[in-house]
């Protein structure tokens, strides 16, 4: 973002600009950003923090369906983001048991949407614990199966807390460009195992009743209740 030269600003606009800056400084809007080891979510976290929000990062650790390198990449990303936003804390929670429960009980085509709904629930629980106002993700429209408009609607429906998506309308190349500028892109593309449970033919458009029917096959409430949120240490 290029700041306007103060000499170009009309006097009547100065009050507005000061108000905007004061708002950014004083507002206490707090957001939990779901951080993967990918390209998008670190950019989303950075953008929200740049806009003045107090960001706390939360990584859902899906081992054994990813690997240790994923966690290493997440640690590096947290460290990099903290160079810009030293107050930004990072946490992780084991999500492997939830992934197992979905894989063992639900129709495989619903794996991604059920995974996302429960990640939102986990983030919502964490947000309530730390007093945050909202959760946020790095999702943009239509990029993968879980990010079609109808699936996003069903994912939002899992939680009562607002879900922000600062990248929703951005082109992937624009996100990559921002990632390169802030130095997260190179960390995001380090070798790691992508989720091993992604089905061949995931549901692109889910009906609410079908989602609930599949979700009823697992004790998601108990699994969310058991989650432990641990600080991500820097190495």
């Amino acid at each position: 973002m290029v700041a306007a030269d103060s000499r170009d600003i009309e006097p009547e606009n100065i009050t507005i600009l000061i108000s905007v800056h004061l708002y950014r400084i004083t507002m206490k809007y707090s957001v939990v950003v779901l951080l993967s080891a990918g390209i998008d979510s670190p950019v989303a976290a950075h953008m929200l923090a740049e806009s003045g929000a107090h960001v706390t990062l939360l990584h859902m650790d899906t081992r054994p369906f990813t690997d240790d390198r994923t966690m290493e990449n997440v640690r590096s990303l947290v460290k990099k983001l903290r160079e810009y936003h030293p107050e930004m804390a990072g946490y992780s929670a084991g999500f492997g048991e939830m992934e197992k429960a979905i894989a063992q009980n639900a129709n495989p085509r619903y794996q991604c949407i059920l995974c996302k709904r429960n990640m939102y629930r986990a983030a919502s629980k964490f947000a309530i614990e730390i007093g945050a106002d909202a959760i946020a993700t790095g999702e943009s429209l239509g990029q993968v199966a879980s990010q079609t408009l109808s699936n996003l609607v069903e994912e939002d429906a899992a939680v009562d807390i607002p879900v922000h998506r600062p990248l929703i309308g951005l082109d992937k190349n624009d996100v990559i460009e921002i990632g390169r500028e802030i130095g997260t892109y190179e960390l995001s593309i380090q070798p790691a195992v992508c989720c091993m449970l992604t089905p061949k033919g995931p549901k692109l458009s889910c009906k609410k009743d079908d989602v609930l029917k599949e979700e009823d096959k697992l004790d998601w409430g108990g699994l969310i209740e058991d989650l432990v949120f641990e600080p991500i240490g820097e190495r």
């Binding site: 054994p64 894989a103 063992q104 495989p108 794996q111 091993m196 449970l197």
Partner: peptide, 21 residues
């Protein structure tokens, strides 16, 4: 057997070899 379901079987051999889905 690290995990077994109808969609994936996750196995491990020894520390020399990686996990396999």
């Amino acid at each position: 057997i690290k995990f077994s379901s109808k969609v994936i079987l996750l196995i491990e051999d020894t520390i020399e070899y990686p996990e396999v889905g």
